[in-house]
Amino acid sequence: MHHRLQVQKNRPEIKVVKEYGQLPLVVCYSSLLNQVFMNLLANAIDALSDAATRTDTPLKEPQIVIRTQTQPIQSLSSTEKATDGAVIQIGDNGSGISQDVLEHIFDPFFTTKPVGKGTGLGLSISYKIVVEKHGGQLRCVSSPGQGTSFIVEIPLNPQPS
């Protein structure tokens, strides 16, 4: 995806800030998680490209921050206690997402992109990979004008399903 980060005709280079903490080995489906991370990065690049070409307040210094760390995470089951997890956060400084859109971003076929530019399946599939295949969580934190962050939480010691 490096070529998509480079200077474009209507957009400056997208800077990627890597804040990697120490993560232990994680039991996971690595190719599926790679699909999730590629989708989140592609969406961040699309959002920053859109924000950079806005005519009202174009984004001058588009940036993506990737953070990794280990921290306690809460299981989806409220009866289970918190467990150690790998937390991966991918955030951008784009124009953010409204509350109405946030409520639907993980719905299958939901997209804000014009016809022909997206299927609306990327976040839905990513959600299923993280939650159903890994017993983790995928959350989005955003508000208009403040950028968007997706947080992937994967338990370090997955429970047998």
Results as ranks from 00 to 15, higher is better:
Lys9Gln: 13
Lys15Glu: 15
Gln74Glu: 11
Glu153Arg: 08
Gln74Ala: 13
Thr79Pro: 00
Leu40Asn: 06
Ile88Asp: 01
Pro144Ala: 11
Glu103Ser: 15
Ser98Gly: 15
Cys28Val: 12
Lys117Ala: 15
Val36Tyr: 02
His3Phe: 13
Val27Phe: 08
Thr148Arg: 00
Ala44Leu: 01
Val36Leu: 08
Ile105Ala: 05
Asp92Pro: 03
Ser30Cys: 12
Leu33Met: 07
Glu19Gln: 13
Met1Val: 03
Asp46Ala: 12
Thr53Glu: 13
Lys117Met: 06
Leu40Trp: 08
Val16Trp: 03
Ala47Tyr: 11
Ser124Phe: 07
Ser31Asp: 14
Gly122Ser: 04
Gln8Thr: 06
Lys128Met: 11
Leu76Phe: 03
Ser142Val: 02
Phe110Gln: 09
Glu19Ile: 09
Glu132Arg: 07
Thr55Tyr: 05
Asn39Tyr: 02
Asp92Val: 00
Asp46Thr: 13
Gln99Tyr: 02
His134Cys: 14
Ile45Thr: 13
Ala86Ser: 15
Val87Phe: 15
Thr111Cys: 03
His104Leu: 13
Asp107Asn: 14
Ser77Glu: 09
Gln69Asn: 07
Tyr29Trp: 03
Glu61Ala: 15
Tyr127Phe: 10
Ala51Asp: 05
Pro24Gln: 04
His3Val: 10
Lys18Met: 10
Ser124Ile: 00
Ile73Arg: 05
Lys133Asn: 14
Pro155Thr: 11
Gln71Leu: 12
Thr119Phe: 06
Leu23Met: 14
Val141Tyr: 14
Cys140Trp: 01
Leu138Val: 04
Leu59Asp: 10
Ile45Met: 13
Lys9Leu: 12
Val131Ala: 08
Gly120Leu: 01
Ser161Gln: 12
Ser31Pro: 10
Gly118Ala: 12
Arg139Val: 03
Ala51Met: 01
Ser77His: 10
Val141Gln: 11
Val16Met: 09
Val26Trp: 08
Val7Phe: 07
Pro155Gly: 09
Val101Met: 05
Ser124Trp: 05
Val27Asn: 07
Ala86Pro: 02
Gln159Cys: 10
Gln63Asn: 11
Gly145Arg: 06
Gln71Tyr: 00
Val115Ser: 13
Gly135Thr: 09
Asn157Leu: 10
Ala86Thr: 01
Lys81Trp: 02
Ala42Gly: 08
Thr148Pro: 02
Gly96Asp: 09
Ala47Pro: 00
Glu132Ile: 09
Gln63Lys: 14
Ile105Glu: 02
Val17Tyr: 00
Thr55Met: 06
Val17Ala: 08
Met38Asp: 14
Asn39Glu: 15
Leu48Arg: 02
Gly145Ile: 07
Ala82His: 07
Ile64Lys: 01
Gly145Gln: 06
Ile45Val: 10
Pro72Asn: 09
Ala52His: 04
Ser78Tyr: 11
Lys60Tyr: 08
Val26Ser: 09
Phe37Gln: 01
Pro144Cys: 15
Ser98Arg: 05
Phe150Trp: 15
Val26Cys: 12
Thr119Tyr: 06
Lys18Cys: 03
Val87Ile: 14
Thr68His: 03
Cys140Glu: 05
Asp56His: 05
Ser78Val: 12
Ala44Lys: 00
Ser126Asp: 13
Ala86Lys: 02
Phe150Gly: 00
Leu25Gly: 14
Ser95His: 08
His104Thr: 08
Pro158Asp: 08
Phe37Val: 00
Gln35Thr: 06
Ser30Met: 03
Lys60His: 09
Ile151Met: 04
Gly21Phe: 10
Asn10Thr: 11
Ser49Lys: 02
Tyr20His: 12
Pro160Tyr: 09
Ile105Val: 14
Leu48Asn: 05
Lys133Gly: 05
Lys60Asp: 12
